[in-house]
Nucleic acid binder design. Structure first.
Lengths: 239, 239
DNA sequence: TAGTGGTCTAGACCACTAT
DNA sequence: TAGTGGTCTAGACCACTAG
């Protein structure tokens, strides 16, 4: 436990109780009982409101479920909506080897469309990064990403990473919200050549505008080979 | 206020405080201050923990934001993930007139694929509903929906509604979670004829498996004209 | 009847912000 | 210095569930 290393007097009591309960029920199956509130009052020598504060957090989080008159139990995991992922994560999740070949990585002046999408002014400096991306060695898609240079100082000088989303993560800019549009189309001659398919083959076009809090961190357009790629999306209410 | 009609002794105090604050800050813009906790203690003559319980609920809900040392303020609305919608809702949202023509609506025995997707056994009774759907009079997509007859008793006898999702809503079966897959493809000859496009035109195929709690309420396959339809998806973290 | 969560009180001290 | 939210105490009564 991390708590061993922490100054003992510093840890908040409701946090201590919360983390105790979390580790206690960590591996339990849904429906298993959690300790009763009064039991935790005894064990930690705290007031009941303190225990309730701890348990409330776990209930909001979806780990526990209260049943009046019966007790508190491990909740069944909520079905979750899709994480916002990039190509590397997604292909890895599918058990494929993700590789990328940078075709272009440079500073450009934003055109009207890209400027609007990035919430910038036309002519502002943006990073344009074009990659041919493979899965298990076979061309899968061609991606054009546009990034706000102000948010990513020194990005082009640091050598391009494999995963854009890892880089964003490292800078605390992991997208928290994204709007995607998806269409079916035919490949242009250039796209077909790079993707190694016949000209005018069917492709899936995927555009994304990704935000971290209120900052637009990525605008991208990706064209996928339709014969190799299916897009999966999970949607959830609430949360 | 609803409270006027409610038995005065019945309303829980933290609910009274919560709803008072909700209506008070209802129309306010983000950043507006909410009453301080001690001010509400005075106004309602309750303990501070009761006020905190009320405010906690509004914070979890995303309406309020606490800033230690400063006060409690109206939060900026969270960006939300896409609602799970059907065709009628989606087209209406886009300002188009949604119309449907039922091509088939009957009881069938589930084949292996549909049975698995609906969490049924092969041969179980399912409802198969095929519709040609128009937007502003022009064919937009062809949809095959498969429904669990046990969850929708008398569905076929009641005359087919325009919106499946409205019917599900009315029965308390509005989907809370959905998994979609999206691919690009070419239309079959039959599809092309119904959609009034050239044979082998590019289409967008969209499959959905929608659940309400743990019940599979809809399994569908839809083929959209690529020249008329773009799919939009919003993704959010947490929620 | 004993145990559970739900609600509620009337205080207290703390760190932080703003003036 | 005054006001705010964050944390915490040591009780209390209620409705409900289960044996």
């Amino acid at each position: 436990m991390d708590d061993v290393m922490a100054p003992p007097g510093r840890a908040l009591k409701h946090v201590q109780v919360r983390e105790y309960v979390r580790t206690l029920v960590g591996g339990s199956s849904p429906g298993s009982p959690a300790p009763s509130e009064r039991e935790l009052v005894q064990r930690f020598g705290v007031a009941r409101m303190t225990v309730r504060q701890a348990m409330d957090a776990l209930v909001v989080e979806g780990l526990l479920e209260r049943i009046p008159g019966r007790g508190t139990f491990v909740a069944r995991p909520r079905r979750t909506a899709s994480k916002i992922t990039g190509y590397t994560e997604e292909m890895t999740r599918r058990g494929l080897l993700a590789e990328s070949q940078t075709l272009l990585a440079r500073r450009e002046q934003a055109g009207p469309g890209v400027a609007r999408a990035l919430s910038l002014t036309e002519g502002d400096a943006v990073i344009h990064w074009r990659r041919l991306r493979r899965a298990d060695g076979v061309p899968m898609c061609l991606e054009d990403a546009y990034l706000n240079e102000v948010l990513l100082p020194g990005f082009l000088q640091q050598g391009m990473p494999t995963s854009l989303y890892d880089s964003l993560d490292a800078r605390g800019l992991r997208p928290t919200w994204a709007e995607d549009s998806i269409t079916a189309d035919k490949a242009t001659a250039e796209e077909a050549g790079l993707l190694e398919v016949e000209p005018f083959s069917v492709v899936l076009r995927h555009s994304r505008r990704a935000l971290c809090d209120d900052k637009v961190v990525e605008v991208s357009r990706t064209v996928y080979r339709a014969d190799r790629f299916t897009l999966w999306v999970q949607l959830g209410q609430d949360c």
